[in-house]
């Protein structure tokens, strides 16, 4: 969905193509924060802003060829994602962006019986609302650390879905993954955070 303060893509795109400065300011105001958020998820804090700025130049360069197969917002975020992935590959800071799709179990196999039912089931947590969980400084740090150690595409999926509320369809286009891979990325990310909370709660 387009940003509520922006005109429709049909109105905005011709203005951007005509180098209208007011439209530049409008679209940067609407999307730059989101772009930095996504870039942070993929490349980390240090160069996220630089990646988002680089993406704006790439957006303007590619705009005449934009085929409207997605919304302008989704297309811009895809450029951010690709710019960020290129930076990561260039800097060789990660072996594989797709680490998350490797076959590793969601639950530690030691917690399951041979018949695939629980041997060591989840314990109760001390809190049952997000606010109550986040009231603990230690747990906030634990969640923050768990988010920081997710593989880049998992972190991007959880940022776009659970923090920014984008649809899975848009997220898969942005990250250039299939629908099923997008769902795997998201579920693995959520499960890792859940396990981090569980470990903390079990202490």
């Amino acid at each position: 969905m387009a940003h509520p303060t922006l005109p429709s893509d049909d109105e905005l795109i011709p203005r951007l193509l005509a180098n209208d400065e007011t439209s530049y300011a409008q679209i940067v105001t609407a999307y730059h924060g989101l772009m930095v958020h996504l870039a942070r998820a993929i490349v980390g804090d240090a160069i996220a802003d630089e990646v988002a700025q680089e993406a704006w130049v790439a957006v303007l360069r590619a705009l005449p060829k934009f085929e409207r197969r997605s919304s302008l917002k989704t297309w811009i975020l895809r450029i951010v994602s690709n710019t960020a992935k290129s930076r990561l590959r260039h800097e060789s800071r990660t072996v594989s962006l797709d680490e998350s799709l490797e076959e590793s179990p969601i639950i530690d196999p030691a917690r399951l019986k041979p018949n695939a039912h629980w041997a060591s089931p989840p314990a109760m947590w001390h809190a049952d609302t997000p606010d109550a969980l986040l009231a603990s400084t230690e747990l906030r740090r634990c969640i923050s650390d768990a988010l920081a150690t997710l593989p880049p595409l998992q972190r991007a999926a959880v940022t776009l879905r659970d923090m920014q509320g984008l649809s899975m369809e848009a997220i898969c286009k942005i990250l250039e993954v299939s629908e099923s891979n997008g769902r795997v990325l998201l579920h693995r990310a959520r499960s890792r955070i859940q396990m981090a909370i569980e470990e903390h709660e079990g202490q």
Binding site: N19, E21, Y24, A25, V28, T29, H32, G33, L34, V36, H37, R40, Q53, W56, V57, L60, W125, D128, T129, P130, D131, L133, L134, R140, I143, S144, L147, V158, T159, D162, M163, Q164, G165, R190, I193, Q194, I197
Partner: peptide
């Protein structure tokens, strides 16, 4: 609960962008 907590965590806040930053980016675009 984990999903709802992720959505309310400090990391879920969209980064703030100042007017100066916006203007600097618009200049770069121009």
């Amino acid at each position: 609960l984990t999903i709802d907590t992720i959505g309310k965590s400090p990391e879920a806040t969209t980064p703030n962008v100042s007017q100066e930053e916006i203007q600097a980016i618009v200049e770069k675009m121009k």
